[in-house]
Design a protein around this nucleic acid. Sequence first.
DNA 1: AACGCGGGGGT
DNA 2: ACCCCAGCGTT
Length: 352
Amino acid sequence: MTLHLANPHPLDAPAVLAWYDRHARDLPWRIPPAERRAGIRPDPYRVWLSEVMLQQTTVAAVKAYFTRFTNLWPSVHDLAAAPLDAVLREWAGLGYYARARNLHACAQVVVRDHGGVFPATSAALRTLPGIGAYTSAAIAAICFDEPVAVLDGNLDRVLARYHALPVPVREAKEDLRATLQASVPARAGDFAQAMMDLGATICAPRKVACLLCPLQPGCRGTRTADPVAFPVKPAKTDKPTRHGHAYVMRDADGDVFLRSRPGKGLLAGMTEVPTTEWSSTAHETIPPVSAAWRLAGQVVHVFTHFRLELDVWTATVSPEGLGDGWWADPGTLRSEALPTLFRKVLATAGLQ
DNA sequence: AACGCGGGGGT
DNA sequence: ACCCCAGCGTT
């Protein structure tokens, strides 16, 4: 069903752009508005890389990864030619590891099927691995000024407040998209970035500065008792806890046993140390080999949809009968594709 | 349409 | 101790 938004007017795009001209954040992948207006266009490779890294990830967390990736792989050709292992290693710690696999796959498609040149329309970009509705629109607007609605979590919040939306955003997503689409001006890329900057600074999740906002005149939310009450949240479900044991094994040389996780599912393709199953009830330790095991401590790690408590055991073992894996010198752990969970495990065992 | 998928910065 | 972040792919 179509939900009629309380505020039928398009956004005041000229006011938003005027604000952006004065207050645009300086970001490593961004062309500042003055240069952008002078006709300088951003490198689609850098915009794409930043947008993928920024999926569900904060600017602060992305910056160092972006610098490292662009230093290692300055062009899409370089990234496409890199081994997937190297990309996963560099991505370790950033989360949502399917992004790294799709990033690599996308680079290879761009090189193989598009001559190393990113497609210039949102529709064509949308077909590439790891590029969905948001990212395709963002790249097309920012790089090519395609007049398309760029709707992310920031915009969900800004628009929910602008309309004083009485239902969770998910129930009105297409209505929000339609009103945003009707507001997109000629400087579509700057408008998209302006709206996201607005959401990150003036219309932040738990703090608003309505008096500084270029959208304040038309905003319904600012006229309510508590603009921060929008967007209305769906009822939250509480997070279950799972338990397990992790086994940090070292051989006579002090090397530590590592292996690769399966190619699908949680932390797919990343490096781990062996663990038991992670079950909803605590269970006894089931070591992979017989040895003089010592309990080193416990690690607590929170994923999107559950909380994990792992008891960390250590032992010196003989290097037979452990199946696929490898023995790593503790000094080289920094360059392994270890997600944060297993870095915590190794730290608890006295490594790293 | 709903769900699985990380990790960290901000409050 | 929360909340939420420049979402996507699968089912």
